[in-house]
Amino acid sequence: MNLAQIFTDLVFFSFAAILVGSALMTIISRNPVRSALFLVLAFFAATGLWILLEVEFLGLILILVYVGAVMTLFLFVVMTLNIDVEEQRSSFVRYLPFAIVIVAMLVILMVYVISPGHLNPSELTTTGGQPVNYSNTTELGMVLYTDYAYPFELAGILLLVAIIAAISLTFHGKGNNKTQNPDQQILIRREDRIRMVKMQGDKK
């Protein structure tokens, strides 16, 4: 095993540990804001892993789109909502034993299935070892609009549906909007709003 291999392994395992740890903290953290921030950390760690696999474009997109846009919006929402954490914790503790049993079973199964004894690593193709002038972005662009044009279009329709669904659930029609009408505001006269009343002052 040469030095480069050891270094790659080191980078991989540190990013993997951060990813698993922060994903776990996302779930068990008491404070929702902290959960969201741990999710951001998980995205960063995943980016590290992707760049290690030489898929730079996807890694950077993950940071730009998810960390930069989605999670920022998400943090806004979490901060504006007043979520009662204590109330949720009671059910959390109640279901904890079941959850631990199920997760433990799944983890054991998964480790068993993908252990080297069962899965021969040589059967899996590995990425990497691309020439120096290889561009991940170009390659993606080449297949995205040719081989994957149909799924790409479908994903676009899916986003359109998401917009329509979100608007139809939140928009309550024009009549209910409490907007200002500038025309009316300009045309207002003093007589419409203020009425002068003469009152006798109190005498001592």
Binding site: L109, M110, V113, I114, H118, L119, N120, E123
Partner: peptide, 11 residues
Amino acid sequence: LSSGQELMLIF
């Protein structure tokens, strides 16, 4: 399939 792949598929 090899047995390892089959196990993964069943999973």
